[in-house]
Design a protein around this nucleic acid. Structure first.
Lengths: 144, 144
DNA sequence: TCAAAATAGGACAATTTTGTCCTATTTAAT
DNA sequence: ATTAAATAGGACAAAATTGTCCTATTTTGA
């Protein structure tokens, strides 16, 4: 569904949000370890998220990544996905047609639209905060 | 969502079903042209579909690909997707975790399960016949 | 029998995605 | 000032996906 880069990106963002919520800055090493992701590849993705203003990066010793506390509640999963994978996941044609639309639809257009609408809805209504809430109490996991 | 190979495979299968319904055998060239797919790559995918008993191939002059009429109504989209992409699309974890499940879920497990269930449902309840019905009357398209 | 037309399949090539490595830069602390 | 620890970013490498090409095989029809 999502690219590997996007999966790592979501996991990383969630971990950073969790740490930021506790007032801690997260280092690349920690992020990679706690989300079971390849370090250098994750670094690239964090750069991308940083450029897209989803996370903040702080250079230098004691630097790392963080998310302004007040934003954690407002950042949607959809923004992270969009920053990394674009909107093709919930916009493109299920059969890969360039110009598939309600006027000249592919044979499964309507059915895919329904699924994709649900997906978009879900992504746009899930905040980073919501994703961290289960982690703190050990109900959900970012690796395994 | 699906791989290119899978998209081509679905389009090809649909076209073959359409032709078979009219008693015609479809040649690789026709299939590729009518679904706007790369010829040689499509050939590989058709081999795969043939090995998975979804379509029949007939070698030799006047050969081609076909689907037994009585099967068109029973072949589900899910079978085509499974033959080419496996079941990861509607089984795997949205965040890419190996062992994500209801017991040790990722932060979006439940939400993804809902979407994926809908997707699987849709794929399992859409037959090839259903996909061809709009094509005949020009309501739907396989290229563009 | 032979030629033509079609699929089968192996080998290879191009592209994209995933991932690594090295150096530069920034910053904190001593 | 210097050193150490961290991110930034470019270059490269590996793997997966997408795609091509060539030859072999099968089958029909003249």
């Amino acid at each position: 569904m999502f690219s590997k880069a996007c999966e790592y990106g979501i996991r990383a963002s969630t971990y950073i949000a969790l740490q930021s919520h506790e007032g801690k800055r997260a280092s690349l090493k920690d992020i990679a370890r706690e989300t079971d992701s390849p370090v250098a590849f994750t670094a690239k993705i964090l750069q991308q998220l940083s450029k897209n203003k989803i996370i903040d990066s702080v250079q230098g010793a004691a630097g790392g990544f963080e998310i302004v506390k007040s934003k954690i509640n407002h950042i949607k999963l959809s923004e992270i996905v969009y920053a990394i994978d674009g909107d093709n996941v919930y916009m493109g044609c299920g059969l890969g047609l360039e110009k598939c639309n309600a006027n000249k639809p592919c044979p499964v257009h309507d059915k895919f639209v329904a699924i994709r609408d649900d997906l978009r809805d879900m992504l746009e209504n899930t905040t980073l905060y919501e994703m961290t809430s289960g982690l703190e109490v050990g109900l959900t996991y970012l690796k395994r």
